[in-house]
Design a protein around this nucleic acid. Structure first.
Length: 831
DNA sequence: AAGTTGGAAGTTTTT
DNA sequence: CTTCCAACTT
């Protein structure tokens, strides 16, 4: 460090200020290949920013620097920090996928894509894939679409093109992939679309096949930095290599111990083999951890030491010893959630921490349910970072699909999504016919429609609907693309999308209108933030490539909940990791091979090392699975981690935490009783119980009989059956309260007067020849061809979708669409 | 055409 | 306990 300061001019002082020796070394090496092995919390982002600042200061033009990150969030933060350090300089930083998307907009013609291509998200790609699957009439009953789709994804990530794919022996999906992969890829190109994997695949192919272009881009991006290099796959590796051949000023940062995307084709060998790929590489190790307490690091260290496929690496603590890492056992996820929420509530009210200091991690998104419920009940604000967010909702996908179709008329997936949304009476039959025509002519669905309208008879009854739809799209194509919000408003107006929802007047449609409002606001915000580089195409690219993690706002004072995958790169003072159970953390589907288990262990390692001050590892004795309560043994990882830093949460604390709930009367909830098991432990356990118990009882742990039979679960089961106010009513009773009460009273009436039935029957036969049909009225009597006579109980719905509820003598209550049903009015109440 | 219902099936992680 | 899909209803 001192040497470094002597060597560099005084201008450098600011850039090197406060860096340790290794960090300074990593910053100062800007020419030639460099590998930065950065443990968790070692100031990696800082090194990257300062290194870029140093390059700029050394006269490297900003446009020749390329920073590739894993998430948009990381890229944005990088950009932000560079701006702070070197104001006024613009360095391109973004994800691989975004970078590739930009290249393909320019050079996609090499592989048959025009510059307005669409990026399909997972949903759309799957939709297109199953169409191809259906068309190919796959006979094999033994492979699933999902297996084949994921095998194709693997092939793409491994840079295997459709024509080169050969089934490997022992791979049941292989033969089907051989057949489907080329068809799927052909269809994608026909639709002028790419899936996520294609962004990488096509870019790699273009760079491989166009030496002149490769040289130009290699020179253009003379300085490249790749973050999270341990998570790059073969395609990404190939792209990076192509761009750093003549100008091998490539710096990669990463940590083999944090490689958690092997299932997506990430090859940990890329970072382990970096020294082999690039001769004369300089290696810098950042081993000082500035984030976590010594105890937390001790636990992390002991865990990861169990991995065999790794380079041993130290984590040197610089923080205080800290509080013990806690291990908490609960009888059920409900109890676990209640315990966590009440503890967080107490810590907040005591002023120890703020909501935003807490994070709760889990292996899979569904594990957040109970937590959400209890945090809501406790009034703790939280933010969920999960997979089913804004852009997944139907109305949002519909509107985005309109935009995609406007930009790329060949996008058949978008066409299918919107052609009957809002409802235009264009159904399966019509769509099948359009598909046949498209297959025959090789044209896109929209083109087929346009052509067929020359002879409307070929479209049958749907011709006029299609005519209208095509006219709407054509009208929308004339709207200028520079203002996204205006385009969206035009879509809403031209298609009457919002108007139809407004007319519906149900709870769901008003929620959808709210979401649409939110989308309009977001679009306006995008327009504002991108006055130069915005517009419809840029917006669609952003919409396709944003992830939910990117939206995470650390400034908002909320508890954060997310998967451990999403937690990568983040840090929080207090961390809870839930569901540390065998079958969940190592996940049962990742327990086949040692390699898989090691990746699970790295995932746990990532979770643990996010914690700065306090860490609690939680597991349940059992949980509901497939409708029944099942026992859950604690994760084998927990046993690997046992040691002096670890402390079991003692039942006395458990009781104390619940005291709060017991004093508060909440309707609908019973204060949970400490389970029998907790009491037993309280008596015979003691402070030294925990570690010894786990170490000496492998057999008990492995067969999950640590609990004392089912007694401890009993109170939970009843809690489980209590109605859950956060979810809607179960199917089957999903009727409005009014119509339900109506039905009860009517039923009572009906049963009092049994003779009414015969009377009604007689009246019905008397009026059976067709008179003018009077309007339906509540209380009126009607005749149904199958069910016989009945009484009108309620009228509901909207003018567009009127419903009628009838109580029949023969079969009880029934509900029909009033404009479709075959009901004859016998009498009205006032007659 | 479109909504409702019953039965079978299934629970990873994400650019 | 949920979610998806095919069959059935109007």
């Amino acid at each position: 460090m001192d040497d470094a300061n002597d060597f560099f001019s005084s201008n450098d002082a600011e850039i090197f200020l406060g860096l340790n020796a290794q960090q300074a070394q990593a910053v100062s090496v800007i020419d030639g290949p460099l590998m930065i092995l950065a443990g968790p919390g070692s100031g990696k982002t800082r090194v990257i920013t300062h290194r870029i600042a140093y390059m700029l200061q050394q006269g490297v033009p900003a446009e020749r620097i390329l920073a590739l990150t894993f998430t948009n969030k990381a890229a944005n933060e990088l950009g932000h920090r560079i701006q702070r350090l070197v104001p006024g300089q613009f360095v391109w930083a973004g994800t691989f996928h975004r970078f590739c998307s930009r290249l393909l907009r320019q050079y996609g013609t090499f592989v048959g894509l025009s510059d307005n291509f669409s990026i399909l998200d997972m949903d759309d790609a799957t939709k297109l894939f199953s169409q191809v699957w259906d068309e190919a009439k796959v006979q094999d009953d033994f492979v699933s679409t999902a297996a084949v789709q994921s095998e194709i994804s693997n092939a793409k990530n491994a840079l295997i093109r459709p024509e080169d794919y050969r089934a490997r022996v022992g791979n049941p999906a292989g033969k089907v992939v051989e057949k489907i992969y080329p068809l799927y890829q052909k269809k994608l190109v026909q639709c002028n679309s790419v899936d996520f994997d294609d962004l990488l695949l096509w870019t790699a192919i273009i760079l491989q096949e166009n030496e002149e272009l490769r040289e130009r881009l290699d020179e253009r991006f003379a300085y490249i930095m790749v973050d999270e290099y341990q998570d790059t796959n073969l395609a990404q590796y190939a792209i990076v290599r192509s761009l750093s051949n003549d100008y091998p000023n490539l710096a990669v940062t990463g940590d083999p111990d944090q490689s958690i995307y092997g299932w997506r084709g990430a090859n940990i060998g890329n970072i382990l083999g970096f020294e082999r790929d690039y001769p004369n590489v300089q290696v810098v190790r950042l081993e000082q951890n500035y984030r976590s307490t010594q105890k937390i690091l001790g636990v992390a260290d002991r865990l990861i030491a169990n991995n065999r496929l790794r380079k041993p690496k130290r984590l040197i603590a610089t923080q205080e010893v800290g509080q013990p890492v806690r291990m908490k056992s609960s009888s059920s996820p409900q109890d676990e959630a209640l315990w966590i929420s009440s503890e967080i509530k107490n810590l907040i009210s005591e002023g120890v921490w703020e909501p935003k200091d807490f994070a709760i991690f889990y292996r899979a998104n569904w594990l957040s349910r109970n937590l959400e419920h209890e945090l809501t009940a406790a009034g703790i604000p939280y933010q969920l970072v999960n997979g089913f967010e804004f852009y997944q909702r139907k109305e949002i996908k519909d509107l985005i699909a309109y935009l995609r179709l406007i930009v790329n008329p060949k996008n058949d997936v978008a066409f299918e999504r919107v052609v009957n949304s809002p409802a235009r009476k264009i159904g399966k039959v019509t769509l099948d016919r359009l598909h046949d025509m498209a297959r025959a002519s090789g044209a896109s669905l929209l083109e087929v429609c346009q052509n067929a309208l020359q002879q409307p008879s070929s479209l049958g009854r749907a011709a006029s609907s299609i005519q209208k739809f095509v006219a709407q799209i054509q009208q929308l194509q004339t709207v200028p693309w520079n203002n996204v919000r205006k385009v969206l408003e035009s879509v809403l107006e031209v298609t009457s999308y919002a108007k139809i929802l407004e007319a519906d007047q149900t709870e769901m449609s008003s929620e959808r209108l709210g979401n649409i409002d939110e989308l309009l606001t977001a679009a306006a915000e995008f327009d504002k933030q991108h006055p130069e580089d915005g517009g419809l195409e840029a917006y669609l690219e952003t919409a396709a490539l944003v992830s939910d993690t990117d939206k995470l706002d650390g400034d908002v004072n909320h508890v954060k909940m997310m998967t451990m995958h999403a937690a990568k790169g983040l840090e929080f003072p207090c961390v809870y990791i839930v569901g540390v159970e065998e079958g969940i953390l190592p996940h049962e589907r990742s327990s086949k091979s040692e390699k898989d288990v090691e990746e699970e262990r790295r995932l746990f390692f990532v979770g643990i090392t996010r914690a700065q001050k306090e860490l609690t590892l939680c597991h349940c004795e059992g949980r509901m699975r497939r409708g029944t309560f099942a026992m859950c043994p604690p994760s084998s990882f927990l046993m690997e981690v046992l040691g002096p830093e670890l402390e079991r949460v003692r039942p006395s604390e458990y009781k104390k935490s619940f005291g709060h709930w017991q004093n508060e009367s909440r309707s609908g909830f019973r204060p949970p009783k400490p389970t029998e098991r907790d009491w037993v432990e309280d008596e015979c356990g003691g402070s030294s119980f925990d570690i010894a118990d786990y170490e000496d009882n492998d057999d008990r742990l492995s067969n999950g009989s640590l609990t004392k039979g089912n007694e401890s679960a009993a109170p939970k089961v009843s809690r489980n059956q209590a109605p859950d106010p956060s979810r809607g009513p179960a199917r089957g009773i999903r009727e409005s309260a009014t119509s339900f009460s109506n039905r009860i009273s009517t039923a009572a009436e009906m049963f009092e007067d049994q003779d009414l039935a015969t009377e009604l029957g007689e009246k019905a036969s008397a009026t059976s020849d067709g008179h003018e049909q009077p309007a339906f009225c509540v209380g009126g009597l009607v005749q149904h061809p199958e069910y016989g006579p009945g009484k009108i109980v309620a009228l509901s719905g909207s003018p567009a979708k009127p419903y009628i509820s009838v109580y029949f003598f023969s079969v009880g209550p029934k509900k029909f669409r009033a404009d479709f049903c075959d009901l004859r009015v016998i009498s009205n109440p006032r007659n």
